[in-house]
């Protein structure tokens, strides 16, 4: 299943990449492959912006604008004039 995503949320800098493979290990949507000893974001349109790759890349080769894709959080944020706010982790709601 695919979804849309803004193109500026995910940046990969091949020069800094050492090909360590950590991003391949953590990405839940198989966005990366290692090609010629470097990571290659071959499926970047499947990225869900979880930020796992950027958080775990030791060499700063990845930057992800992370966030949770939840309409309720975005709407709450809009109403309050803030960033998406998830207040459903309280005792009454579902999570995320």
């Amino acid at each position: 299943m695919k979804y849309f995503r803004a193109s500026d949320t995910f940046q990969f800098n091949a020069e800094k990449c050492t090909g360590c493979g950590r991003c391949v290990e953590v990405c839940p949507h198989n966005v990366f492959k290692i090609e010629n000893r470097k990571a290659a974001p071959v499926n970047s349109d499947r990225c869900m912006e979880c930020g796992a790759c950027a958080e775990n890349c030791e060499f700063g080769a990845l930057i992800v604008k992370r966030g949770v894709g939840c309409a309720a959080a975005v709407i709450t944020g809009l109403l309050r004039g803030t960033e998406p706010t998830c207040d459903c982790s309280g005792p009454s709601g579902k999570c995320c």
């Binding site: 299943m1 849309f4 995503r5 949320t9 966030g67 894709g69 959080a73 975005v74």
Partner: peptide, 20 residues
């Protein structure tokens, strides 16, 4: 249905913003 984005495993924040 739009609310269901919060429960999926593949929707991105920028995509949800766009939808809204």
């Amino acid at each position: 249905a739009l609310q269901f984005t919060g429960a999926t495993t593949y929707t991105s924040l920028s995509g949800v913003k766009k939808e809204i």
